[in-house]
């Protein structure tokens, strides 16, 4: 896609509206789930209650967002810091180990990490946050490394020749040039974590995974659909927001 058409796309109101559409659908689904009782009745004609009502959906959504946001904050900070540190002259010794770790860590299934976190941290929200942090860290580290390493050495040299300090080169040259790749990593990490956070319901963390687990345990598909619907809408809202930001970045 040429730069011109990318600029055009970023400004067209239709494109900007996509995240808003998903967000408003999510809001509608959270507040008006009870109005959809007739629809869910189709899935489960025989059971007594078809709308998950043990905890309010907005509370579940809030908890889900909280877990994902904390994990994202930590992973973005740590991942960026680690990626930047090992590409500096002083930290270059650690580069092989960190990049190997980033690929090895990807082979650890999140369920296994979650299960291993429980003996150490107990039941509840903490183990799922830790599991999400470990799992979400790797795409960010990997993409930060790729992004920073792909910056043309000639450009860095030119910046140095213009008298920029290494801090200025990092902030004004390297990071802006690596930003699209880094952002892609953050997008992958956060989107995967929104879906993975549902696993927290199996270790006693209450979030949007709750209706799914309750549905599986009680054989009530309607519950499962409600949990899946909300998680899917949340993932789509966040993902499309990231897509817009990426388009903006590319348009520059």
């Amino acid at each position: 896609m040429s730069t011109k058409s990318a600029t055009h796309n970023a400004r067209s109101p239709w494109q900007l509206g996509i995240p808003l559409v998903w967000l408003s659908l999510l809001g509608l689904a959270v507040t008006g789930m009870a109005q959809l009782e007739g629809v869910f009745r189709l899935f489960e004609p025989d059971v007594r209650s078809v709308i998950y009502s043990r905890v309010d959906f907005s509370l579940l959504l809030g908890r889900h967002l909280f877990v994902v946001a904390i994990a994202a904050l930590v992973t973005i900070t740590v991942g960026l810091a680690a990626g930047i540190a090992v590409t500096r002259n002083k930290g270059r010794d650690f580069l092989p180990l960190v990049s190997q770790l980033a690929s090895i860590g990807q082979t650890f299934p999140p369920v296994a990490v979650l299960a291993l976190a429980v003996p150490v941290l107990g039941f509840g929200t903490l183990p799922i946050i830790v599991a999400l942090m470990l799992y979400g860290l790797l795409p960010i580290v990997r993409n930060t490394l790729t992004g920073l390493q792909e910056v043309d050495a000639g450009i860095k040299e030119a910046a140095q020749a213009m008298g920029m300090t290494s801090g200025q080169i990092l902030r004004q040259v390297e990071l802006p040039m690596a930003a699209p790749v880094i952002l892609a990593g953050i997008r992958t990490s956060v989107t995967i974590n929104i879906a993975t956070a549902a696993l927290g319901a199996t270790v006693g963390a209450s979030n949007l995974g709750d209706p799914i687990i309750a549905g599986i345990v009680n054989g009530n598909t309607a519950y499962v659909v409600q949990g899946a619907l909300l998680i899917g809408l949340l993932a789509l809202s966040v993902d499309s927001t990231f897509e817009q930001v990426q388009r903006r970045l590319k348009a520059y």
């Binding site: 696993l199 319901a201 899917g232």
Partner: peptide, 14 residues
């Protein structure tokens, strides 16, 4: 891929 794994398993039960 965007459907959470937990939900996909649950959705196939019925």
């Amino acid at each position: 891929q965007t459907i959470p794994s937990l939900a996909l398993f649950g959705l196939l039960l019925a």
